[in-house]
Design a protein around this nucleic acid. Structure first.
Length: 125
DNA sequence: CTTCTAACA
DNA sequence: TGTTAGTA
């Protein structure tokens, strides 16, 4: 991971901020965590602390859901994403960026699942 | 005042 | 998912 990703990985955002940034209820955000889709840190008071990467992922999950996918489908997406990222790095000397890998995987999943929307506004990538 | 967990007229 | 109770 590079230095430009450091600030995006810092968990410093409280629930209230994430609610506004994602336009989701605390209930929904906690549900994503309960489903092991996101892993926010906790402060000494047991309160959740999110990073900007968490926020991006939450919005992505939100879009996946509105595009017809269920929790299981989304878990598969991230599972494959992890595997594919390793494969690519080992198979080629060229190192793909996270965004490039995500783009390929997500586009593949949506196309194969028939979830691809014709409306660009419905997609977060 | 904000957030957390657990539970459901 | 919403909402509410009782905490921290």
């Amino acid at each position: 991971m590079e230095k430009t990703d450091l600030h995006r990985s810092l968990s410093v955002l409280p629930m209230g901020t994430v609610m506004k940034l994602t336009d989701l209820s605390a209930r929904q955000i906690r549900y994503y965590e309960q489903q092991q889709l996101i892993f926010p840190k906790r402060n000494k008071g047991n309160q959740r602390l999110f990073s900007l990467n968490d926020v991006d992922k939450i919005i992505e999950i939100k879009n996946f859901l509105s595009n017809g996918m269920n929790i299981a489908d989304i878990k598969h997406v991230y599972k494959k994403y992890q595997l594919q990222k390793k494969e690519k790095q080992h198979r080629y000397s060229k190192r793909l960026t996270d965004n490039e890998t995500r783009r390929l995987l997500i586009d593949d999943i949506l196309t194969a699942g028939g979830f691809k929307s014709k409306n660009p506004k419905d997609q977060s990538f």
